[in-house]
Computed example of a mutant assay.
Amino acid sequence: MARVSYVRADELESEYEDLVVSSLQPGKAVNVYSAVATNPPVLKGLRQFLGSLWSHSGLSDRQRELVILTAAHEIGVGYEWHQHVNIARNADITDAEIAALARDDREPFAEDEKAIIAYARAVVRGRVTDSLHDAVVEYVGEEATVGAATVAAGYLGLGRVIDALDVDLEDGDDFVGWDPR
Rank of each mutant, 00 (worst) to 15 (best):
R62S: 01
A88D: 01
Y155F: 08
G147M: 08
R160M: 10
A122Q: 02
A152N: 01
G172V: 02
E65V: 08
D130P: 02
N31C: 02
H84T: 00
N31R: 02
E170M: 07
S5Q: 15
E15N: 03
V123P: 02
G45D: 05
A153K: 12
G172Y: 05
M1W: 06
L46K: 13
P41L: 07
L158D: 08
I98F: 03
D105Y: 03
V4W: 08
A9F: 00
S5D: 11
D130K: 11
V146W: 06
V67L: 09
R127V: 05
V85E: 03
E113V: 09
D173Y: 04
E15Y: 12
N86I: 07
A9Q: 11
L169Y: 02
S57F: 07
I68K: 14
I87S: 01
G177T: 05
Y6C: 09
E107Y: 10
A96C: 09
L66W: 00
E143T: 07
S23M: 09
D61F: 04
R127C: 06
E107D: 09
V77P: 04
V137W: 03
N86S: 13
L156K: 00
G172L: 06
F49T: 11
L69W: 14
E74A: 15
E13R: 15
E65S: 10
D104L: 12
D95E: 14
G76A: 13
K28C: 07
G172C: 12
Y155K: 10
N90E: 14
A144M: 03
A102T: 07
E142W: 07
A91L: 00
G157R: 06
F49Y: 13
I98P: 09
S131A: 11
D112M: 08
V123H: 02
R103V: 02
I93K: 07
E74C: 04
V124S: 05
N86G: 11
A152T: 08
A148H: 11
R64E: 00
S14P: 01
A148R: 11
Q63K: 08
T38A: 15
V20I: 02
S57G: 14
L24S: 07
R62Y: 06
G51E: 09
K28A: 05
S34I: 05
E65T: 01
V128D: 05
A9N: 13
R121L: 06
R125T: 03
Q83D: 09
D95P: 15
E170D: 15
L46C: 03
T94D: 08
E142C: 02
A110S: 07
E170L: 09
V176F: 06
G172R: 06
D18N: 15
L59T: 14
